[in-house]
Design a protein around this nucleic acid. Sequence first.
DNA 1: CACGAAGTGTAGCCAAGGCTACATTCTGTG
DNA 2: CACAGAATGTAGCCTTGGCTACACTTCGTG
Lengths: 149, 149
Amino acid sequence: MASPPGVRRADLPAEPTQARRFGKARTAQSGALHEDYVELISDLLANGGEARPTDIARRLGVSHATAIKTIGRLKREGLAVAKPYRGVFLTAAGEKLAERVRARHRIVVDLLLAVGVPAEAAEQDAEGMEHHVSDTSLAAFGRFLRRRQ
Amino acid sequence: MASPPGVRRADLPAEPTQARRFGKARTAQSGALHEDYVELISDLLANGGEARPTDIARRLGVSHATAIKTIGRLKREGLAVAKPYRGVFLTAAGEKLAERVRARHRIVVDLLLAVGVPAEAAEQDAEGMEHHVSDTSLAAFGRFLRRRQ
DNA sequence: CACGAAGTGTAGCCAAGGCTACATTCTGTG
DNA sequence: CACAGAATGTAGCCTTGGCTACACTTCGTG
């Protein structure tokens, strides 16, 4: 009721900037799960030799059914391949994504440590934050870290 | 197939630490939307005097129906109150949350700027990252910012 | 004071990510 | 080589957070 008569909300310029910002943050979040899966699968393949749905589920703290369903989505998007009862593998695209995610994760953790976040919190928070770090910010993080060797 | 015979995945210690980390990151994400809404409502009330579903929808880049549905959830959780056709208001709990979110947002943006992220990217990335910043990290950010005055 | 436009609300749809319960396949061991 | 137990897969359900389409209020203006 603070508006003068004749002025309706439509007068506001719709703030497309802010809307774009929020929208982007939300879509980024959408890919986050896939990034986690792909990174984990890559780790399991590199370390243990195989990536099995149950391992993945355990590491991510979800039921095996959920893991299998998500792996299905990964396959649908061309990031992973899997034959029944034969473990999960990454496509070239999946490997590439995993590498990018891994590198980004490292930089975010390093940045947090550099500004004084305790190691445990750094690991924990990076897990959530990393998915929202743009390439621009990532580059800035890199420069910052190099600057203070 | 790299596992020696007799060793099944169950031997792995189930990595409760990592699972907890991922789980937490995911649940944090769940409250993110509510935080955005509450912060925005608080802003609208402070600046324009009233917070209307259409304004909220426009600012967040979603349809008004989506906004109304989410406002319903906010009400259910005791963060907001609203009577039909009368705009949205925050409860004490909602105001408190909004204040915390606002403060956190400011600190995250300041930190990004301090490490050299360009202003536009800082605002954009903060929108997504802030929801995953723990109190521990937030405190560290504050110390870091104060240290370099 | 009536009317039309803008805002508000409701209904019904969808996909993503969760879960539990049940069915199926593998596989190490007796 | 059979079988029990683990891993895997399937089905069905739920909530969240989106959407469009349609119905209903409000309210400034003519």
